[in-house]
Amino acid sequence: MKRSGTCIAAFAALSLVLVGATAASNAAVSDHEPDVIASPRPNIAYAIFKTVVARKIGAVGGMVLASNNAAVPETVIRIANFTFAPPTLTVHVGSSVTWKNEDDMVHVVKEQNGAFTSDALDTGDTFSHTFSRVGTVDYFCAIHPHMTGRIVIEP
């Protein structure tokens, strides 16, 4: 719990910086992700906080991730060239996943049966969802349905 508390404090501090530095904040999310996974009890407050942070990133919009793919954290799914990358992503329960649209075309992230649906994501927009149950979630682009992807959620 102390570790999670530290995370929250760290993110609280980071959030002040986030609005002006999307790429840096994404790297920060990556750095802290293992802490969440290692936590014996996934910290819901932390997950919610991360979602809020992600929304802040989304609100900034228009910014492009660093071209170096290695800098993209594993919980970010890039939408590029009408594909989801990676097409299958494995996360631990409680993780938040962020989709970022890098195409010059609008996309809509939708769970196969409509359990969650993003707004229309224009270039640079992001959408985040927290996965609170173990299992497999299939999703697609609601307006380009040949675009499909999968999230595998492990304990």
Partner: peptide, 8 residues
């Protein structure tokens, strides 16, 4: 409208 995953 109401497009299905994997479809056209």
């Amino acid at each position: 409208l109401d497009l299905r995953a994997g479809g056209l």
